[in-house]
């Protein structure tokens, strides 16, 4: 029998961040939770603190008040995919994938084997010894994804990872992420500007208001999994997109 109130993987309570010297907080009073294996998108107008919120959860920035907790107390294995692939240009694709493992002290043979495996998962096995300058934008993003996967994350943060890609490559990346997440069951918190992308990929969409960013709605996306491309033409999909667009419009007025 499924527990009706499962303990969330991540619980956020009244999290706020104000940069010193600025009048308005970057974001404020954010409370939410993410369950194991759940895909949650965060959408909102530019400057509302979405990316800052993600960085606070990844301990890249210190929040001013509030807190967040992980299931069991300790932070699980997390990974972060940035909008820029952030590959080190002097390292090959495989060496870039190995970096998190190198930082964790994993032995060379083991990290080479793990890196080769995850590169295969993102269909870049033959590019293992290629330097980033010789890779296309889509390939670089796939290496970035492989690097994130190398640590076997339980929680993946994605900060507009596909914003710089063309529409076709972006769609391919959406599909790749969904496939990997479906197989490996990590939780995800993704910032996006695309309502369609948010609905297509997510179990829930958190809608934030303008600066200072607050969550104004938490929209459950009850579309079937695994998601298929055709679902984007379904009435249910379009209803969710419309719903979120209306909330965003209201958020701009208030």
């Amino acid at each position: 029998m499924t527990n009706p109130h499962p303990v969330p993987l991540l619980q956020v309570r009244d999290l706020s961040l104000r940069y010193s010297g600025l009048d308005l907080p970057a974001f404020q009073n954010i409370s939410t939770e993410v369950q194991r294996g759940e895909f949650v998108s965060v959408i909102g107008p530019s400057g509302c603190g979405k990316s800052t919120f993600l960085k606070a959860l990844a301990h890249l920035i210190k929040a001013s008040s509030g807190d967040f907790n992980w299931q069991g107390g300790d932070q699980p294995s997390i990974a972060f995919i940035f909008q820029d692939p952030t590959l080190l240009p002097w390292k090959t694709a495989q060496q870039n994938v190995e970096i998190p493992l190198q930082l964790q002290g994993v032995k060379k043979e083991d990290r080479q084997s793990i890196a080769a495996k995850v590169l295969e998962q993102v269909l870049l096995k033959e590019k293992a010894n290629t330097y980033p300058k010789a890779l296309s934008g889509g390939m670089r993003m796939r290496v970035s994804i492989a690097r994130a996967l190398s640590v076997e994350p339980e929680m993946m943060f994605l900060d507009e990872p596909f914003a710089a890609l063309d529409a076709i490559t972006r769609h391919q990346m959406n599909h790749l992420i969904l496939e990997l997440q479906n197989r490996q069951k990590w939780a995800a918190l993704m910032v996006t500007h695309s309502v369609n992308e948010a609905v297509y990929m997510s179990d829930r969409v958190l809608v934030m208001s303008g600066t200072p960013g607050e969550i104004v709605d938490d929209v459950k996306i009850d579309l079937e999994r695994p998601r298929v491309e055709e679902i984007q033409n379904s009435p249910e999909f379009l209803r969710h997109v419309q719903e979120i667009r209306e909330i965003l419009k209201k958020g701009r007025i208030t």
Binding site: H59, D84, T86, Q104
Partner: peptide, 13 residues
């Protein structure tokens, strides 16, 4: 680049 620094910091560099 700050993003590169952040990327390594995520993995406890």
């Amino acid at each position: 680049e700050p993003n590169m620094i952040d990327c390594l910091k995520v993995y406890q560099a």
